[in-house]
Structures are given as C-alpha cells and as structure tokens.
Amino acid sequence: MQQTIALWQHRYRKYTHLLKVYLHFFKVYTQIIFLKIRFLGKRKIVAIILTQQFGDIVAGEPIARQIRQKHPDDYMLWVVKPVFKELVEDNPNLDGIIEEFCANQRRLLLNSGIFDVVYNLQFRNNSHCPICQIYVENPVADARNVTIHNYYFQGNLLTVQQKMAGLPLEDLAPCLFLKDEHRKKIDKLNLPSRYIVVHGQSAQNSRNWDNTKWETLINYLLQSTDYTIVEIGLSSDLNLKNDRYINLCGQLSILETGEVIRRAKLFIGIDSGPAHLANAVGTYGLIMIGKLADFTNHIPYSGKYKSGENALIVRNTDGPSADIPVNKVIDALNQHQLL
C-alpha cells in the first residue's frame, strides 16, 4: 500500500508540474505573439538564455551591452530563473525578462521558434529538469567547440559566453545595477565604516573551507587589525563571538549583498557568486581558487579581477580550494599589504 501511495504521489507531482510547464510556456508564447503583432515586423524579438548560477549571470552582464550594440532597435529579453531575476531586471540594455519555470519550458520556447534571434549561453549539464527528465541541448555551443569539459581552457566566463554567442572577444568588466532601495536597506544596518567582507560557502563543497580554517582566519583578522569582519552568504556554521564579527548570512538579497561588498575595504572569499559581485562593484578581492576538474590555472573573471589590478588569486593547482592552508592566505594578505 505504501509503495502504491508513493507511486501515485510521484505521478501527481510529475503531471502537476508538467501542466504548469505548458501553462507557463503558453503564457510567455502568447505575450511574445502580442509583441510581434504590436511591432509589425519592425523589431525583432531577441532572447538571451542564461538562467542560473548567479556568478555566471553577473560575469555575463557585458553580453547584454554587446548584444544591444548589435540590435539597437530590437526587443531584448533575458531568460532567467526567478531567484536570480534581480540581477537583470533593471539592466538598461534589456527590454524585459522571462522568468523560467523549468528547463523544459525553455526547451518548448526554443523549439517553438517564437524568438527571432537566440543567444544561448547555457550548457547542457545545467539545463536539466529532473521532474520532466529533460535535458536542453545547445548545438550552437557544441558547433563552436565550447563544452562543459573545455570551457575554461578557452578563457574566462565572459569570454566563453562571447564565443557561444558569436560576439567579439572584449575584456569588459561587469556592472551591478544597485538602486536606492538597496542602499537604504544597508544604511539601516549601521555597519562600521571600516570592515572586511568574507564569504566561505558555495554549492560546491570542494571549494568550501571547513569552519576551523575560517574561524582561524577571522580570529587572526580581528586580533591583527581594527577592522570589523562581516560574513555574507546563504548560511554560516561558524562559532564566533566577537563584537567586531557580524553575521549577515541569509538576511540579504543578492543586490543587497552587493551593496555590502561595495562598501567594504576588502573581500576575502572562495570562487563563487559573491566574488563576481565584488568584481562588479570594484572592491579589492582575495579569491581562493583550486583545481576544478581538469582546469588548474583558470580565471573566471574579466576586467580588473582578470588583470590582477584589483584582485589577488590564491591558488591550489593540485587540488580543491578547500585544501588551501590558512597560513597561505595570511601570508598573501601580509605580503601584498592588504590589511
């Protein structure tokens, strides 16, 4: 009986999800049809497909500028997951966004031919809906020999996206579109004027330092400087009690986090989304990067983080960034007089 109940619960979730997929598809399809009627062929509908990994979206912001130059009078849409829409919804180079319900909905839109021009920046491996059991292929990227297995051999994230889109390879720094509401929210926190931001947890465990390393580094910073240490991210398991340690994890939106980083003296973190925020807002960063699959000396960033003008990369070419010793980071901070 329990197996039967579980089977029918699974079927209910799956078919309910599929119904929502088609409802979302038809909603967007109808909206674009009305746009085409309104434009009477005078404006093309251009879609940028980059739905997730918010660091990738931040790194790819210059793509919208390049595509706008190529399509000055066309109607540009960015397809994105709702949780990341704040990163693109106020981009002045876009006319709108499409909130993606799941990868299958995106597949239906692409296959429908509703878009006049598509810039698909998404790999197959992060274009999967486990409920629909659907992967969305990217034959254009495959034809240009850009795959999940070789992309970092071809450049940073922006360069890879430019190659996938067939755009000029320009080293453009990303921008973040902060508004007064983000500044006012952070004003209310009454943060001190001098602080260092740290970020230590990503979705990929191999990048994450264990708590002991972070506690050792933060205690060193508290004892050796007069800076307050502000931790950001989704969550924290650190056991720290100090008046100059502030835990903001789980309390801020992405752009509010960007504003906190913008005001900081220094950003110290692993290679993850907030590091891309630091690059976009111009805060000097010490970034820990380890070996990733076959990539050992890759650089994810463009602009001054790529050139090293505004960032110091601490590497582990033999293994993950989780294995980087605390002393190596402390020595880098002191040798480059970052404190």
Score class of each variant (00 low, 15 high):
2 Q>C: 04
223 Q>L: 15
31 Q>R: 06
236 S>K: 11
162 Q>A: 01
124 R>E: 06
221 L>W: 00
76 M>E: 05
132 C>P: 08
255 L>C: 05
302 S>C: 02
23 L>D: 13
130 P>Y: 00
46 V>M: 14
25 F>Q: 01
237 D>A: 06
232 I>T: 14
6 A>N: 10
190 N>Y: 09
252 L>A: 13
297 N>Y: 01
140 V>H: 10
6 A>S: 09
179 K>H: 04
30 T>Q: 11
269 G>R: 01
247 N>H: 10
139 P>Q: 12
307 S>I: 05
95 D>G: 01
313 I>E: 07
323 D>Q: 11
57 I>V: 04
193 S>K: 11
272 S>C: 08
66 Q>I: 04
266 L>S: 02
25 F>S: 13
72 P>L: 09
71 H>K: 15
63 I>M: 07
23 L>Y: 05
206 S>Y: 14
177 F>M: 15
166 G>M: 04
231 E>K: 11
127 S>W: 00
307 S>T: 11
103 A>E: 11
334 N>S: 15
317 T>V: 07
293 A>G: 14
181 E>Q: 15
325 P>L: 01
268 I>E: 07
208 N>S: 02
250 G>Y: 06
241 K>A: 15
182 H>L: 04
223 Q>G: 09
116 D>A: 05
105 Q>V: 05
232 I>E: 07
281 V>A: 04
253 S>C: 00
200 G>R: 10
137 E>T: 04
39 F>Y: 14
146 V>S: 03
63 I>W: 01
7 L>C: 03
121 L>F: 02
10 H>F: 14
246 I>L: 10
194 R>K: 15
227 Y>C: 11
319 G>M: 10
252 L>F: 12
271 D>E: 10
288 M>F: 06
170 E>K: 15
144 R>Y: 06
328 K>A: 12
27 K>P: 09
105 Q>E: 08
312 L>R: 02
288 M>K: 01
238 L>T: 09
195 Y>I: 03
276 H>V: 02
45 I>D: 09
19 L>M: 06
296 T>L: 06
282 G>P: 00
332 A>M: 06
226 D>P: 13
239 N>Q: 14
52 Q>C: 06
292 L>W: 14
258 G>S: 03
253 S>N: 09
42 K>Q: 14
36 K>F: 04
302 S>Y: 10
126 N>R: 04
256 E>N: 08
176 L>T: 04
205 N>W: 10
240 L>E: 02
107 R>K: 15
291 K>L: 12
4 T>I: 13
53 Q>R: 15
30 T>I: 12
34 F>A: 14
141 A>K: 05
164 M>F: 06
191 L>V: 10
287 I>L: 11
95 D>I: 13
202 S>Q: 03
253 S>D: 02
177 F>C: 00
